[in-house]
Amino acid sequence: MSQVDLRTCFAGLSLKNPVMTASGTFAARESGEFYDLSRLGAVITKGVAAKPWPGNPTPRIAETYGGMLNAVGLQNPGAEAYIESELSYLAQYDVPVIANLAGHSVEEYVAVTECLNETSVAMFELNISCPNVKEGGIGFGTDPRMAAQVTEAVKRAAKKPVMVKLTPNVTDITAIARAVEDAGADAISLINTLLGMRIDLKTKRPLLANGTGGLSGPAIKPVAVRMVYQVRRAVKLPILGLGGICTGEDAAEFLLAGADAVAVGTAALVNPTAPVDVVEELAAFMAREGYADVAALKAAFVG
């Protein structure tokens, strides 16, 4: 596979390959127990806020056909603990770190941005799309005006490139994508989870303590591919495509749809080495199909 060049430039970052971990499904120490993190294009860490968040009550997880629901609610130890623990641990690896930022308000998003400005973080991913947080989160991601407002404020405060993560729980995702592009975003990632629900037939109650949760996994992949395709045609920004990627072939599908890089999320919960498996499978797929680099594969889309 030496003939395949996976190197990727994404919003100014030089990556070994276009494969990242998806926020919320990656923890440095725990994932690093299964594979060498330096083999990835980048890692996107779990949502972090300026101050610690307790998250939602349990059960937070429910299985569904071909996927899962989660309602973790962005439990995180706050920026200070994130810098001391997660970031310092990641320093031993040769991999760019993208920090997923959480907040309940514009001020909170700006606060965490400022906390992480002087760190080794290579890029920010603005999480305006978590369906499990009552205030903030998805509230910003479903309204083009609010999405633009928070993007602009964070962009003004940030000393790193800012990627904005979009929710699929909207009527027209291209309207949000255009709004954050106009507000100065450096990249877009999509999709976050789809709002879903399951009910326990024994207790007749929702399976999740939160009632509803975010659906992820291979079940949502066609929705994600469609939205990447739509957003590619609406904006010029680099796109990180994610949503149900389990294999290298899945990753290739996103690249063909218009993504410039991809992230592996739920698959890593199902198979801890999935992110690096996807790197190898993508290279094998490209070698088999005769594409020398990512640009050649992307250019092959007929649509």
Binding site: A27, E30, T58, I61, V72, Q75, P272
Partner: peptide
């Protein structure tokens, strides 16, 4: 016992509460 996602600590789906030094920790 708790409903788990990954089982290896990545997803933070299966937390419990402990009372440690007078404070609740997850």
């Amino acid at each position: 016992e708790e409903r788990m996602g990954c089982g290896y600590g990545a997803c933070v789906g299966c937390v419990c509460k402990l009372l440690r030094n007078g404070a609740i920790v997850q």
